[in-house]
């Protein structure tokens, strides 16, 4: 009996592993196909405007380790990554630090909702890029303006999802907590925050995506380092291979951080089967 159960458990594990490997193969296989298609198109059309994957790979190597072109971009990848990460995570964390508490309060306290909601709704439709001139006046030409733009971009998804999360909590949970002796401040920490957590994580993932989108815009404001500035330099110097390398690095970093958030999500929300990934 027990042996049969062990055997079937082993069988199930094996099937799950096979399933997982299949998923990874499919997920990784498709980009490989895209690169092959890219290579074929460049060869077939003989275009000089788009570099081939090989040229981009060489550029990537030089950008990472140097020794090929030995120019201003050789072996500078770490500097650019660190600068961009500092701005992305600086802006993103500031957005979370302000957006989550503010969202909890707007969602739960009527007075604060009445006070702030119209203003926030008015500011929300303004595209973040439209803030570019003002942010340069506020913060000058430099990293602070970039952080501000990233912050603006990440702030609204986090705020709105948090508000939505609080508003959609089953009111019975508040009643249950109140009857069990929970009130005031404790209610925020023990009920409102955990109950809104699935929506907050949604907001964090969306906001994090926007943060990486806006870093390129932010680093167009005339900062000398960062992946966004590398892409802009690639454009002005007509070095498309450099621009594509910058794009790839941003894509990979964004993907990895998103996985990190998902990992955290799965840990924090292990009570909720429908919020697992």
């Amino acid at each position: 009996m027990a042996e049969a159960r062990d055997a079937s458990a082993a069988e199930r594990r094996k099937r799950l592993t096979r399933e997982r490997i299949r998923g990874i193969m499919l997920g990784a296989g498709f980009p490989v196909l895209l690169v092959i298609a890219w290579d074929l198109v460049v060869r077939y059309t003989g275009t000089r405007l788009i570099p081939s994957p090989r040229e981009v790979a060489v550029m990537m190597y030089d950008f990472s380790f140097g020794g090929i072109y030995d120019d201003a971009f050789s072996a500078t990848i770490v500097t650019h990554i660190l600068k961009s990460m500092e701005r992305v995570y600086g802006g993103f964390l500031a957005a979370a630090a302000l957006g989550i508490p503010l969202g909890l309060m707007i969602g739960r306290v009527k007075l604060i909702r009445q006070l702030l909601d119209p203003t926030l709704s008015l500011l929300r439709p303004i595209p973040v890029t439209a803030w570019l001139p003002l942010s340069m006046i506020f913060f000058g030409l430099g990293p602070k303006a970039a952080i501000f733009l990233v912050f603006l971009g990440a702030f609204y998804p986090i705020l709105l999802n948090t508000i939505f999360g609080v508003r959609s909590v089953d009111p019975r949970l508040f009643e249950a907590a109140a009857m069990l002796g929970c009130s005031g401040q404790a209610m925020f920490r023990q009920i409102v925050l955990p109950a809104a957590m699935p929506a907050i994580f949604n907001g964090l993932r969306l906001g994090h995506g926007f943060a990486w989108i806006l870093i390129v815009v932010g680093e167009m404001t005339g900062v000398p380092t960062g992946l966004g500035s590398v892409i802009m330099d690639g454009r002005t110097l007509s070095r498309t291979d450099l621009a594509i390398v910058g794009m790839i690095v941003i894509g990979v970093l964004g993907f990895l951080t998103d996985r990190l958030i998902v990992l955290l999500n799965n840990r924090v929300l292990r009570w909720s089967p429908q919020h697992h990934e």
């Binding site: 089953d170 019975r172 949970l173 009643e175 249950a176 907590a177 109140a178 009857m179 069990l180 002796g181 009920i191 955990p194 109950a195 957590m197 929300l269 009570w271 909720s272």
Partner: peptide, 18 residues
Amino acid sequence: GPGSDRGMVFQEYALFPW
């Protein structure tokens, strides 16, 4: 108001899911 001397049991349970 609500008090711990009176405990409600809801049809929909209203347990804290987390």
